[in-house]
């Protein structure tokens, strides 16, 4: 049992990590398109942008539900401490997602009076992304825990660092979103997306660098991990690969290859996420509750793991099938209304 109690939380941390990465990658590009939405100059362009993501957004957002539920499944203590600590940004994110989600349907039903839903879609996407970044920042800067409970106050999360993370994530999602538009559309829209991708890449790299420098200054644990620990030889390929990926993404954006830009942007996100994991490990509620302390009992983790191993491959399979069904460029009049 001791062995299992050691490995199970690691497996679950990996699974939740996959869910969050899936969410960030999939919903990231559709939130990015939402932020760029008002840059579409005509109704047709905006229709195009929305149709490029409409078949997927619901499935994409389900990964966010899995992230939340997964945390409750495997690490109830983390769920019960992180969420109260980040109450306001999480709440703001949820409300913003409400507006954005219904805008997909309401916009088409309310035509020709859909301008408010255009704005709701853009604003909802922007606010949701910013709030997600703040949640990330609030998590990384540490949560005040006493007696296995959140012991801080309502606005602990509100710091320059968390706001910086909020803006940084906006840049990152815009990078993914514009790369998706480059892949899925033609003409003016695609050309403009190319310019957006380029400046979003610069901004993303700036914020990645800023966060990477700020966190070791803020936390001894993180500084120790990256600069003084015994394993640093194994860790430094991560920033090196990040630099290489940035270059590849830059080339993709310059030559107008949507696929290269998109894959590059996704790899950037993966590497940042890996860096984040390395920084905070073994803590799940940084810097006081470890994976093992937060873990659900093995009975629960095993039961859910069976379900995850059975169903997640199936989920990935039919998700891939839907993406394959709607492959290629968006054509005029795609849709159902």
């Amino acid at each position: 049992m001791g062995e299992i109690a050691y490995w199970l939380p690691l497996v679950w941390a990996a699974l939740i990590g996959i869910a969050i990465v899936m969410y960030v990658l999939l919903d990231g590009f559709d939130l990015g398109i939402g932020m760029l939405f008002l840059s579409g100059t005509s109704e047709e362009e905006r229709d195009h942008m929305m149709n490029a993501i409409a078949p997927y957004w619901d499935g994409n957002e389900t990964w966010l539900v899995l992230g939340g539920a997964g945390l409750l499944v495997a690490f109830p203590l983390a769920y019960g401490t992180i969420l109260p600590a980040l109450y306001i940004p999480i709440f703001v994110m949820l409300l913003a997602l409400v507006f954005r989600g219904v805008a997909f349907e309401f916009r088409f039903v309310s035509k020709p009076h859909h301008h408010w839903w255009d704005r709701a879609f853009a604003l909802g996407s922007t606010v949701a992304t910013f709030a997600q970044g703040v949640v990330l920042g609030g998590f990384m800067q540490g949560i005040n825990i006493q007696n296995r409970e959140f012991a801080g106050s309502t606005f602990d999360w509100l710091t320059p660092f968390s706001l910086l993370c909020g803006v940084g994530l906006m840049a990152g999602y815009i990078l993914l979103g514009s790369a998706w538009v480059m892949m899925k559309t033609d003409g003016d829209l695609a050309r403009r997306a190319q310019r957006h991708a380029e400046w979003a890449l610069y901004a993303t790299l700036f914020f990645v660098a800023a966060v990477s420098l700020w966190t070791p200054l803020m936390s001894d644990h993180i500084a120790e991990r990256w600069f003084r620990g015994e394993h640093i030889v194994w860790l430094w390929p991560v920033p090196f690969l990040t630099a290489v990926t940035a270059l590849v993404t830059y080339r993709g954006a310059r030559k107008g290859s949507g696929l290269q830009t998109f894959l590059g942007g996704m790899t950037l996100f993966l590497l940042c996420f890996l860096g984040l994991g390395i920084s905070v490990f073994p803590y799940l509620v940084f810097p006081s509750i470890t994976l093992w302390e937060a873990a659900a009992v093995p009975e629960s983790q095993i039961f859910s793991l069976i379900g995850a191993l059975l169903f997640l491959p199936l989920v990935l399979g039919y998700t891939a099938f839907v993406y394959w069904t709607f492959r290629g460029k968006v054509t005029e009049g795609e849709g159902y209304h």
Partner: peptide, 8 residues
């Protein structure tokens, strides 16, 4: 996920 196919 299947909603995507059902609608579009």
């Amino acid at each position: 996920t299947f909603l995507g196919i059902m609608l579009f």
